[in-house]
């Protein structure tokens, strides 16, 4: 019984996170300005990381943890580099 509740909760949570990723993707496509797109990309990375963690809970494998950590790091570096580019027109001064 409780396993069934957990299974359905995980499915619902994954659908919600997928919808959150869709909202972020919509902001990337629509803009209107470049900073909106970067903000959308940053949100997309965080949502993808959380989705990976729920996959980890579902499969009972800790391998997904490493993937989530790497995605969080890539997301951070991407946002910083893009913001820097928007501000100066180059990444490294």
């Amino acid at each position: 019984m409780s396993t069934l509740v957990l299974g359905w909760s995980l499915v619902i949570a994954q659908v919600m996170l997928a919808l959150a990723m869709a909202a972020a993707a919509f902001r990337i496509i629509r803009g209107p300005r470049a900073q909106d797109r970067v903000l959308g990309l940053d949100t997309l990375y965080v949502n993808a990381m959380l989705l990976l963690l729920t996959f980890g809970i579902r499969s009972g494998s800790t391998l997904y943890f490493e993937a989530a950590l790497v995605i969080a790091m890539i997301g951070f570096v991407t946002t910083v580099a893009l913001s820097k580019f928007l501000m100066r027109g180059e990444v490294i001064e």
Binding site: S9, I12, M16, L17, L19, A20, R27, T43, L50, T54
Partner: peptide
């Protein structure tokens, strides 16, 4: 199982709320 389900739903719901705020 019930605690895990509760926290997963809370976390996903809050994240979805934040992303809807983007829209």
């Amino acid at each position: 199982a019930l605690l895990t389900a509760l926290f997963v739903l809370l976390g996903a719901g809050l994240t979805l709320t934040g992303s809807l705020g983007l829209l």
